[in-house]
């Protein structure tokens, strides 16, 4: 099971809390997923409104670790201030750091990400950076103090799966001792299984479950796939080869 900043989590599934049809469906999806971490955000609350207060009670009852994010932040200053507000609200040093660099792809701004990660780490945060699979960027994030890396599989909300398997595999090989999480872009359980088969420690997803016709069933499907993928990785899979090799023994075949 993954360990983030010294805390062992009982599940390799990290699940978002946005876009569910209702709070009850969200809670049911979490029960079916056995997710160990829920991602959350901070947003404006109108005076007298109780939306945030109701949501706080809902996620508190999920009995999972909370990972607040800086979603929607496009600058270092925005992300750092949001992280501070999140730390106070959720009483955790964990922060899923997003510094968005491009409005169309929601691709992380690598330069802002490293700078914000350094500032937050120096201020006692434990940073979970939403990044790309760029090896140099990930190296800089580790140098900035990140003890976990969360490369995207594909752009947020696309459901395209693992767009750069070579890059993700390279990260796993290069950062053997750093927990790695595929964050964003997953649409199907098979894609989550693939990430785990690559040796990733966890996957983080939201839309694939929340926007499924039956979120609870999809959550259960992801949980099963992640467990299968992890088991496959630990079982040391065979190496692929180009040429066919018969599995049935040739020796002893009748001459007919």
């Amino acid at each position: 099971m993954p360990t983030f900043y010294g805390t062992e989590i009982a599940s390799a599934l990290m699940l978002g809390t946005a876009q569910y049809p209702s709070p009850a469906i969200l809670a049911d999806a979490f029960r079916q997923s056995n997710a160990g971490i829920a991602t959350v955000s901070v947003r404006r609350e109108a005076g007298g409104e109780q939306a945030g207060q109701d949501f706080w009670r809902l996620v508190s009852d999920l009995n999972v670790a909370l990972l607040p994010n800086t979603a929607g932040c496009h600058s270092v200053r925005e992300a750092v201030t949001t992280a501070h507000m999140a730390r106070e609200l959720f009483n955790t040093p964990w922060i899923k750091l997003e510094v968005i660099g491009h409005a169309d792809t929601l691709q992380p701004d690598p330069f802002g990400l490293v700078e914000a990660a350094r500032i937050l780490t120096e201020d006692g945060f434990q940073v979970f950076p939403y990044c790309t699979e760029d090896l140099v960027l990930c190296d800089r994030l580790v140098q900035a103090g990140c003890e976990v890396l969360m490369p995207w599989g594909a752009p947020i909300g696309t459901g395209l799966g693992l767009n750069n398997i070579y890059g993700l595999r390279s990260l796993r090989a290069h950062f053997a001792d750093i927990p790695l999480v595929v964050d964003a872009g997953l649409g199907l359980p098979s894609q989550a299984a693939h990430a785990m088969e690559l040796g990733y420690d966890a996957v983080l997803l939201n839309t694939a479950v929340a926007q499924a016709g039956d979120p609870a069933t999809m959550a259960r499907a992801f949980a099963s796939a992640i467990e299968a993928g992890r088991a496959a990785f630990t079982a040391d899979p065979m190496s692929p080869r180009d040429m066919a090799a018969p599995s049935t023994p040739v020796l002893g075949k009748a001459f007919l």
């Binding site: 959350v40 955000s41 901070v42 939306a51 945030g52 607040p68 994010n69 979603a71 609200l89 947020i156």
Partner: peptide, 10 residues
């Protein structure tokens, strides 16, 4: 002044 509360997030 910005006043924020816990909300849904991915």
């Amino acid at each position: 002044i910005e006043i924020v509360a816990p909300r849904q997030g991915g």
